Amino acid sequence: MNKLKLLAISLLCDALGYVSLFFPLFDFIWAPLSAYLMTKLYKGKEGKIAAVISFIEEALPFLDVIPTFTLMWIYTYVLKTKTQNINA
């Protein structure tokens, strides 16, 4: 998947997380769905760890403001890439 398309999807998923600020019951649907989407968008061990973090972040009240999907995109395409370039 194109990294800019993945960024757009990540931003959309983070925006969906904000819905629960207005409709708190949305978390019951969104928390497990966000974890599932995280594993599909970001593969491997990192994606699974991010899915657990996403589930916890969405399930707990007042943590919805953390842009988990966008942070995972930054980790994958900015931080991890820089680290790989340094180690190469």
Results as ranks from 00 to 15, higher is better:
L33C: 10
P61E: 05
F22K: 06
G17Y: 01
I86F: 12
T81P: 01
D14Q: 00
A50W: 09
Y75F: 10
C13R: 02
F26C: 04
K43R: 14
C13K: 05
K3L: 15
F23S: 06
V78I: 15
K43D: 15
F69Y: 07
I53F: 13
S10I: 00
S34C: 11
K80S: 13
M72L: 09
V78S: 05
I53W: 06
F69T: 00
T70W: 05
Y42P: 03
L79V: 13
D27P: 03
A59G: 14
L33H: 00
K48T: 09
F28A: 14
L21P: 02
L79T: 11
L71R: 01
G17C: 06
S10M: 04
V78E: 09
A59H: 04
S10K: 00
L71S: 02
L60M: 09
N87C: 09
G44F: 03
G47N: 00
M1E: 13
L21F: 10
I9V: 14
L41S: 09
L37Q: 06
K40V: 10
L11F: 12
I53T: 10
A35T: 02
F26P: 04
E58W: 05
A31Y: 00
L79D: 05
I29M: 06
G47F: 01
F62L: 12
Y75W: 12
L41N: 10
V78M: 06
L16Y: 07
I53V: 12
I9P: 01
A88I: 07
I53D: 04
P32G: 08
P24T: 04
S10E: 03
K40N: 13
K3D: 11
S54T: 14
Y75R: 12
D14E: 04
I74Y: 08
K40M: 13
K80I: 03
L11C: 15
A51T: 02
I49Y: 08
L25P: 04
F26H: 07
S20V: 08
T83I: 15
L63G: 00
V65R: 03
V78L: 14
F62E: 07
S54H: 04
D64H: 14
L11Y: 05
N87Q: 14
L4T: 11
